[in-house]
Amino acid sequence: MEIKSLYREIVNEHNLYPGHKYDLENPTMVLQGINPSCGDDINLQLRIEDDIITDASFNGSGCAISQASADMMIDLIIGKRKEEALRLAETFMGMIKGTATAGQIESLEEAAALQDISHMPARVKCAVLGWRTMRQMLEEINK
């Protein structure tokens, strides 16, 4: 997909009208994720109860792709067990690297729209910022 269509069809909506861009009242985990070279900055907030992500949100600033990707990710992970969220993160990273199968990519639902970012090397780190941050948080619990 050409990047303008990508913006039009999916990124702009989540960037300009995000569903999850606010502070959670009672998060159990909070982590800041940054892309120092572009200044993308998100503050990811999770509420995890009995290994289930019962709520999630983010705040921050950055390019449309970084913000929209985080918003789409949160859509997907609310209500999931943390192992499942980690598996989705692996799938997302795999999709961006071009190693995920079509079946796996389907499990990403709307976030699968970012598949073509894999052809835009300069924007990869924007797309994975939210996922990378979430993975770091969930792996921290497992330590």
Binding site: K4, Y7, G39, A64, I65, R123, C126
Partner: peptide
Amino acid sequence: HDVASVLDTENIYIRAGH
């Protein structure tokens, strides 16, 4: 970065960032 990305599709090459 979004500005530079959409301009790229118009064959316009600029720098964006810090």
